[in-house]
């Protein structure tokens, strides 16, 4: 599994320019396409994390939305044709404008793809994930976790997958021990013979 950057933009100048900035600053795989439809060619299972840099005009494009849903970790960056962009968009995680410096671009990509190992907060669970983990450790099924958190079973499964990916711990007994160590549950919460 690897990380990569994908640039989707109709302009040759923009694609070539961003690709050059990235290649000069980070050793990362860069793929370039001129239309979002070409994203379908990408072997998604191969990449565990992606930075997708695309023209702001592809806001809410269906192919891109699917891409977000099907990639474990993804950062979607819009490219605005304005000199400065203050617009924050729900669809884009961040926006680069024509005046964004090459340092800013490289730093942003590096940080997300974890090139700066000092930034090692990637195994930090979100509050929601901690809540799901707590219920897993207490022996709840996906269905009962979904019911008590008012979310779909599908969402529970997706949280579980993220938890496992972040922690590198896959079995339920292993997750239970993790929850005890991190004080997400206390030893007395669990019936020893049943759970660990």
């Amino acid at each position: 599994m690897a990380g990569a950057v994908i640039i989707v933009h109709p302009s040759d100048i923009v694609r070539t320019g961003i690709e050059a900035i990235l290649k000069n600053n980070i050793s990362v795989e860069v793929l370039c396409f001129s239309t979002p439809e070409e994203l379908n060619q990408v072997e998604r299972s191969f990449y565990s994390e992606l930075v997708l840099i695309l023209s702001c005009s592809y806001n809410n494009h269906e192919t891109v939305t699917n891409f977000r849903a099907q990639t474990q970790r993804i950062l979607i960056v819009g490219i605005s044709a304005k000199e400065k962009s203050n617009t924050t968009h729900d669809f884009f995680d961040t926006v680069f404008s024509l005046c964004t410096t090459k340092e800013e671009i490289a730093t942003k990509v590096k940080q997300f793809l974890n090139f700066d190992k000092a930034n090692d907060a990637d195994d930090e669970l979100s509050l929601r994930e901690k809540e799901v983990l707590r219920l897993i450790a207490l022996g709840h099924t996906n269905k009962s976790i979904a019911d008590s958190l008012f979310i779909s079973t599908h969402t529970v499964i997706s949280h579980r997958k993220n938890i496992t990916d972040k922690l590198g711990i896959k079995s339920i007994p292993g997750l239970t021990v993790y929850a005890i160590i991190q004080k997400i549950i206390s030893q007395s919460d669990i019936v020893k013979d049943k759970l660990i």
Binding site: D123, L167, G168, I169, K170, S171, P173, G174, V177, Y178, I181, Q182
Partner: peptide
Amino acid sequence: HNVDLEIDDLKNLLIKYTN
């Protein structure tokens, strides 16, 4: 598969998450 998972978890717990 399950047996392998748990021994791998044991390693990760020790390497990554114990004080």
